[in-house]
Simulated scan of single mutants.
Amino acid sequence: MFKNKLVNIMLIILISLTLIGGITLVLINYLSTDNAPYNEPTIDEIIALSYDTPEITTNLKSNDFARIQFKIQVDNKKALSEIQKRNFQLDNIIIRELAGMRASDLAGEEGIEGLESRLKLRFNELMQDGMVVQVYTTGWIIQ
């Protein structure tokens, strides 16, 4: 190929290293992916990893009041233990969120979904041993 034997050897080594590196990357990516499909948790798994908040009654910004209760689903047993210990912080977050809202903000499906998603984000900011997967509203009265 080239008249200089050293250049030929250097090119062969570079091409070989490039091929070995490429094959290694492909194999690592192929073998490290989880081929098992994601299965939705069963209802028993959801219940086992859920925490029920006590019923909370608080005033709203619009001088109405709300009586509300949630079921909080977490992703593992450590997170469940942690969220049970943080119950006072959860109550505080719920009361603060509701105190800044009007009854009209909470009306309808959009109001409930919005509150649930804000609570989920705020709860996940606290969590250290896991995360909140879903917040379900189990009791809801606005007067």
Score class of each variant (00 low, 15 high):
Ser104His: 03
Tyr30Cys: 09
Thr137Met: 09
Gln89Ser: 12
Thr42Trp: 03
Leu6Phe: 13
Phe70Glu: 01
Lys85Trp: 09
Ile9Gln: 07
Gly114Glu: 03
Thr24Arg: 10
Leu49Phe: 11
Ile15Tyr: 02
Leu106Arg: 03
Asp105His: 08
Glu55Ile: 13
Asp75Gly: 04
Ser81Asn: 15
Glu125Thr: 12
Leu119Glu: 00
Ile95Leu: 03
Ile83Ala: 03
Asp44Gln: 13
Gln69Gly: 12
Ala79Lys: 06
Asn87Pro: 01
Ile12Ser: 10
Leu106Met: 03
Arg86Gln: 15
Asn8Tyr: 04
Val133Trp: 01
Leu11Tyr: 07
Lys61Val: 06
Glu110Ala: 13
Asn124Thr: 05
Lys78Gly: 07
Val26Gln: 12
Gly130Glu: 02
Ile23Asn: 09
Asn35Glu: 08
Leu115Arg: 05
Glu40Val: 08
Gly130Arg: 06
Thr57Lys: 10
Ile95Gly: 00
Asn4Tyr: 09
Thr53Asn: 01
Leu25His: 05
Leu126Lys: 00
Lys5Pro: 12
Leu25Ile: 12
Ile46Pro: 00
Thr18Glu: 12
Asn124Pro: 08
Gly100Arg: 02
Asn4Lys: 11
Ala66Trp: 01
Ile23Thr: 12
Asn59Gln: 14
Phe70Ile: 11
Asn35Phe: 12
Leu106Cys: 02
Leu31Val: 12
Ala36Phe: 09
Asp52Lys: 06
Lys78Leu: 12
Lys71Trp: 10
Leu11Val: 14
Gly108Lys: 02
Phe65Ile: 15
Lys61Thr: 02
Asn63Gly: 06
Arg122Glu: 11
Lys5Cys: 11
Lys78Phe: 11
Ile13Glu: 00
Ile43Cys: 06
Leu11Ile: 14
Ile93Lys: 08
Thr137Cys: 09
Leu11Ala: 15
Leu126Asn: 10
Ser32Lys: 13
Gln69Trp: 09
Ser62Glu: 00
Lys3Leu: 11
Leu25Asn: 06
Arg67Trp: 01
Gly139Asp: 10
